[in-house]
Nucleic acid binder design. Sequence first.
DNA 1: AATTTAATTTGATATATATCTAATTAGATG
DNA 2: CATCTAATTAGATATATATCAAATTAAATT
Lengths: 195, 195
Amino acid sequence: MQLDKLVAFYKTMGDPTRVRIVSLLAKGPLHGQAIAGKLGLTPPTITHHLKKLRDISVVTEKRDKNTIYFYLNQKMIKQQAKALTQLLEERGDEMENMVEASLEKQKILANFFTKDGRLKSLPAQRKKRLYVFEHIVSGLKKGKKYQEKEINEYIKQFHEDYATIRREFIMNHYMYRENGIYELNPEEMWAKIEN
Amino acid sequence: MQLDKLVAFYKTMGDPTRVRIVSLLAKGPLHGQAIAGKLGLTPPTITHHLKKLRDISVVTEKRDKNTIYFYLNQKMIKQQAKALTQLLEERGDEMENMVEASLEKQKILANFFTKDGRLKSLPAQRKKRLYVFEHIVSGLKKGKKYQEKEINEYIKQFHEDYATIRREFIMNHYMYRENGIYELNPEEMWAKIEN
DNA sequence: AATTTAATTTGATATATATCTAATTAGATG
DNA sequence: CATCTAATTAGATATATATCAAATTAAATT
């Protein structure tokens, strides 16, 4: 998924004149002056827009004597129009759950943390404990390597029993340890919270 | 099909920052500062973009104490993403034919008209004759009322036998006559060319 | 070669907009 | 009521872009 291409497509389509051109060409190819005439604009303006539409491969052209006919590439439009929804569907199925989970998470965090951000106590229930870990771990930098001492200090911000929490971080794959150096795991590896 | 709404949607989505916001929210709701942090932008900038996303109903919000959580409205996105392709499909089925028909029409016109635009002879074959009529009639103004004499003069530009051609215009519903006044019919009424 | 026609390029102008900093608002909490 | 926090508004700046008129290019025709 190249974000740039998707954005370029939407940006180009986000202009009334260009959509009108596309709409015209959907009924069949036309040459530049015909488009200009039908839209009440000058040829340079049409050239300007056609250039942008060509850039995103939405129109192609074919010369016939002195006049150039512009064709619509429907396939590209259909393909790109799907791209945005696909971007959602990558995670889309989980969405409804996640909305509720997010609300639940807020509630749990509110219960187990003091206002100044310290952990009152470690929840016994697995799901709640994992939400708490996720919250704490979210303050660590992705890709950064931490000394054990650093990690201890960091956790102590939240709770005195840093040893337990640090061990849980490893057990639940939030972090991994190599030669005494700690580093955050990619999120996909973290312990999963089922609802 | 409101063109404006479609254009507004595409225009709003045609910005990398906004697509990144949408992409973030697809994983679950977030509050403003979280978005700002993840994108490396300031809160005012996020407010600016969220306003635009709200305008097209792509995000909604829900307040919880002091912080506002922003939610993605997937339904709206899926719906709007379809709109552009639907705009094509309104006429889309005829498209492949029309592309070829357009090429065929060019060829026929090239055969039956001289370089200075006069009609060499009236084709005997119905399809070709209709293409010729379409071409001639395309020089008349929609909505304008013509005297019979005007029509004759106009047709004589193309061919001496204006009477035959004028009669064919009526027979094939390119024009209608009332009290000796001629006027162009809407295109839907014209004789249809089947391939 | 000279002319015509359609398209493009150039340059100008006006408008829109993405981003920031600084100031302000709105709620929640002490 | 004073304070804190998150969001928004206001104002500034820089960049992008839609449009047109005038000049130029490119191909076809005479």
